[in-house]
């Protein structure tokens, strides 16, 4: 080959920018499919609540508001921290990127621990929709539907969080090995997109799970 190619550029790409744009576009396409997956859950919430508003909201009032609210603040903060890490590597500061990745993963882990604690509270209060249930009478049907939505949505989100924490730790390890520089850091950007998307999902789930049913 007559033309010299930069070390990170694979043969099928014209240049590093082309390769980076392809990777970022690929992640966006994946996130589009993820948005439609969670969109189906949103539709289930809308339809279930529409038919049984009173009892569905009664289920929502049983959620642990303080844990959901702290988790919202934690995830917003984690996206902010990761973005400052991305800005750091763009400025050629890999050390700061590593620190930001550790903080982001730590916040993510704290989110999951709080979530597990919340599930423990929910289960000990007999809020699992199958089996003996806390609410009875006219409220039971819609409330069971709400709690089915709750466990599916939060379980799916927690699975995404677990994958995200793994990816952020992988970025930290690669950065420690000197894999990224100001000139090439595409994986840092791609993982950041995924992490922010997981944050977005919680931003939408939070009012649906914790707020709409309250005060109604």
């Amino acid at each position: 080959m007559s033309e010299e190619i930069a070390p990170h550029v694979h043969f099928q790409y014209a240049n590093a920018r082309h390769q980076a744009e392809t990777a970022i576009s690929g992640m966006w396409l994946f996130l589009a499919t993820e948005a439609l997956l969670f969109g189906g859950l949103l539709l289930a919430w809308v339809v279930s609540r529409h038919w049984q508003q009173s009892s569905f909201d009664a289920g929502g009032r049983e959620t642990v508001l303080w844990i959901g609210t702290i988790n919202l603040a934690l995830l917003i903060t984690s996206s902010f921290v990761y973005s400052t890490g991305l800005g750091s590597i763009e400025g050629g500061q890999p050390r700061r990127l590593i620190q930001c990745c550790w903080i982001t993963a730590g916040i993510g882990l704290l989110f999951l621990l709080l979530k597990f604690y919340e599930w423990h509270i929910d289960l000990s209060e007999h809020l699992f929709p199958a089996g003996p249930f806390k609410l009875h009478g006219a409220e039971a049907g819609g409330a069971r539907l709400f709690w089915t939505f709750y466990f599916v949505a939060t379980g799916l989100h927690a699975a995404h969080m677990t994958a995200g924490i793994g990816l952020v730790l992988w970025v930290a390890r690669q950065a420690r090995r000197g894999a990224y520089s100001a000139a090439w850091h595409t994986p840092v950007e791609v993982v950041g997109l995924y992490w922010s998307f997981v944050d977005m999902v919680w931003i939408v789930l939070y009012p649906m799970i914790y707020l709409v049913g309250r005060g109604a």
Binding site: I76, S196, G215
Partner: peptide, 26 residues
């Protein structure tokens, strides 16, 4: 004290937050 049918309006700040995350972090 919103009526039950209007309580999904509480999702509006969430939509603004999603837009902010998309524009700023993504």
């Amino acid at each position: 004290p919103l009526p039950r049918s209007l309580r999904p309006l509480l999702l509006l700040p969430a939509l603004a937050m999603v837009a902010t995350v998309a524009l700023l972090f993504m």
